[in-house]
């Protein structure tokens, strides 16, 4: 399939010392889910800002749906929908009014606008709340409403910047369910950023970015394979004996403090063999998925910088709370 986003040698320098994006290149295929994985401050949001024409790159080129982001920004804007990291809804308007506003600025009017708004609200499961003010919505509902809004003008590409940041697990699951249906049901290409590996799992392709550079890329399975895959943790009555029996069956297990560990790219296909070999000697068995931290550790030799896991929104709120106190 053809590439709908083409990025060549893209660089963004805010100053000599601060290079947010450093000569990155990648292609995104049509009707796929592309994930940009990395810690906050790695250059993900800057890249999105350039792709959606809010920022000019220092050098390099970005093409979205055949239009150059620099030379034809208005054409690019017509082809894209965006869900920013921080909410961009008008909290004093209702859900429906937010969508109607959006329709107008994208040239959708009248009954067409009403139908599309209703359709988009049903798609994200918010139709029964359409006349409620957005300020009464939970974080998850706001995000889903933003996805609905981003889809209303039927964009070719939907950008999602950390779509699940600050959401509870239930809302996160609801949102994911909606996002993963987009390419097949709506023909939309999804470009998303995240710093959760489990979310990156649903992507067709991933690019790992750190300090403005792409340090690895590929399908999630390939990336996980690069760090050896999932880890099966096993406990038996006699670990040494079990390890020997597994070795005979062609499974490599290493002893740890409290059991055995087996690394496998596809644990679900290795587990039956383990159970078969050890039968009722297995006391417990569980699978540990590598975290982004593991991938990161492997790729960069260091852990994800912890202070950056913070939501920009919550920082803003804290600053305000602090000001009020004074």
């Amino acid at each position: 399939m053809a590439a709908i986003i083409k990025v060549e040698g893209l660089t963004k320098k805010f100053s000599d010392r601060l290079v947010a994006v450093d000569n990155i290149s990648f292609d995104v295929e049509q009707e796929s889910i592309f994930g940009f994985l990395g810690p906050n401050g790695a250059g993900k949001t800057t890249t999105i800002n350039i792709l959606c024409t809010l920022m000019a790159p220092t050098s390099g080129r970005a093409v979205v749906d055949g239009h150059d982001c620099q030379k034809a920004p208005r054409m690019v804007r017509k082809s894209i929908g965006i869900v920013f990291q921080d909410t961009t809804l008008d909290k004093d308007l209702t859900a429906y009014e937010n969508l109607a506003f959006h329709g107008y600025i994208y040239g959708i009017r009248g009954s067409e606008a009403r139908n599309r708004a209703d359709e988009a609200l049903r798609f994200v499961g918010l139709h029964d709340r359409k006349n409620d003010l957005v300020k009464r919505f939970s974080g998850g509902m706001k995000r889903r409403l933003e996805v609905a809004r981003g889809l209303m003008h039927r964009p070719k590409v939907l950008f999602l910047d950390e779509p699940t940041l600050g959401l509870d697990p239930q809302s996160r699951a609801n949102l994911w369910e909606a996002i993963t249906r987009l390419p097949k049901e709506h023909g939309v290409t999804v470009f998303m950023t995240t710093h959760y590996l489990e979310e990156a799992e649903v992507c067709d392709r991933l690019a790992v970015i750190d300090h403005g550079r792409i340090i690895a890329g590929g399908a999630p399975a390939e990336l996980k394979a690069a760090i050896g895959g999932d880890v099966i943790c096993l406990k038996t009555a006699d670990n040494a004996k079990a390890a020997a029996e597994l070795k005979q069956a062609g499974i490599d297990a290493r002893a740890t403090e409290d059991g055995l560990q087996i690394t496998a790219a596809k644990p679900e296909s290795v587990m039956p063999a383990i159970i078969k070999t050890l039968a009722d000697k297995v006391l417990s068995i569980r699978v540990e998925t590598p975290t982004l931290n593991d991938v990161f550790l492997k790729l960069t030799g260091r852990e994800i910088r912890p202070e950056e896991a913070k939501n920009a929104d919550s920082i803003k709120e804290e600053v305000r709370a602090w000001r009020r106190k004074r």
Binding site: M75, R77, I82, F84, T88, L89, K91, I105, G107
Partner: peptide, 14 residues
């Protein structure tokens, strides 16, 4: 500050 301006700025409007 609250982001709504971005919604307008990324729209295909002058």
């Amino acid at each position: 500050e609250f982001g709504f301006l971005k919604e307008i700025l990324v729209a295909p409007v002058r």
